[in-house]
Design a protein around this nucleic acid. Structure first.
Lengths: 177, 177
DNA sequence: CGCCTGTAGTGAACATGTTTACAAACTTCC
DNA sequence: GGAAGTTTGTAAACATGTTCACTACAGGCG
């Protein structure tokens, strides 16, 4: 396996046009880690009878019950259509209910049901356990180091995606009571 | 924004049961970076008339033309059904063609067409450009540091997912001629 | 040869997401 | 007060993925 190190030597000068393979490899690495995280988290969630997408909705609602669908769509970075379908299924499953907004006849506000509330804490515990297992062998220092770098990458990406760095509805800074 | 740093002090001792929030934050950070990468890469691919999933198929075929659908499914970590549908659309679009295997009447081998081959290099260039833009501001050192940590995380994840660390069909180590 | 088991691919039903188009309800501004 | 534009949610058509069930062929073994 070729290591992810710089060749040095003739590469010494100036703002170095970073090795192309390094860039590609890093992209794939992020992709892999994220994909595997999904697999592992999904597996942990499966016996609980809910999907990852639906969990996100529950998690956001647990912080702010009674959001409109549009607000949910914004926070979750989904289209309104996607949220609509998701909520249809979640309503059928009994996790949430939609009630008309008394001030705006267009809006339908979404509320957790009692089973929805129970599900939130069950799942939160489960996800936290998995996250800790995933990072079990990484030292706090390495973790922080990597987090700083990833945060820089994320800021670049936010700009490239046309979003602002202060963009507050990113998933990272949410759900931490 | 709360920084991702250790509090120190009373946290000094032993194998420290890592801060739960650190773990969760790191998970979200990975999630965010990966999601934003997808958004940015997809946007770059869009004018080229192909989707990310289809590009992966082309990329793997460009390294090994004439794979069976099952082999593609294994390499891409998809089900055979998903590959089947993907190839249906790609065949309609003219990027690939399926030919019967002369030795095994069950198998249908997949080959790049001429337009498919052209598309591969176009897209590869485009993706490489985007990847380099994404990592433009990160120093080579930080990149390597983060890559080492992420690789450790990935190994843990591979074990948790029930795959072996030497698992060779991971996306990271592919496509780099 | 003939049966059993495993493998390659498809079909049906579904979850999740997209884009495009729309109706209905709000807001703004003259 | 009313036209014009904005916002909320849905509908239709599609891409992408899943699981479960199935067909059809391959290959071994008696």
């Amino acid at each position: 396996m070729t290591a992810l190190v710089n060749v040095g030597a003739e590469d010494k000068e100036s703002v170095l046009p970073k090795d192309l393979n390094s860039s590609l490899r890093f992209g794939f690495l992020i992709h892999d880690v994220s994909r595997l995280r999904r697999v592992v988290v999904d597996r942990a969630l499966k016996p609980l009878g809910i999907t990852r997408s639906q969990w996100w909705v529950l998690a956001f609602l647990s912080r702010r019950d009674g959001m409109t669908q549009t607000a949910l769509a914004d926070d979750l970075d989904l289209t309104k259509v996607a949220i609509g379908g998701l909520l249809d299924r979640m309503e059928t499953a009994g996790f949430v209910e939609r009630r008309a907004d008394s001030n705006d006849a267009r809006a339908r506000r979404v509320y957790l049901t009692r089973p929805g509330v129970r599900m939130v804490s069950t799942i939160r515990d489960s996800v936290q356990r998995v996250e800790m297992d995933i990072l079990d062998r990484i030292s706090e220092d390495d973790l922080n180091q990597a987090a700083v770098t990833l945060t820089k990458v994320k800021e670049t990406l936010l700009e490239m995606a046309g979003l602002e760095p202060e963009d507050s509805h990113s998933l990272e800074s949410n759900l931490l009571e």
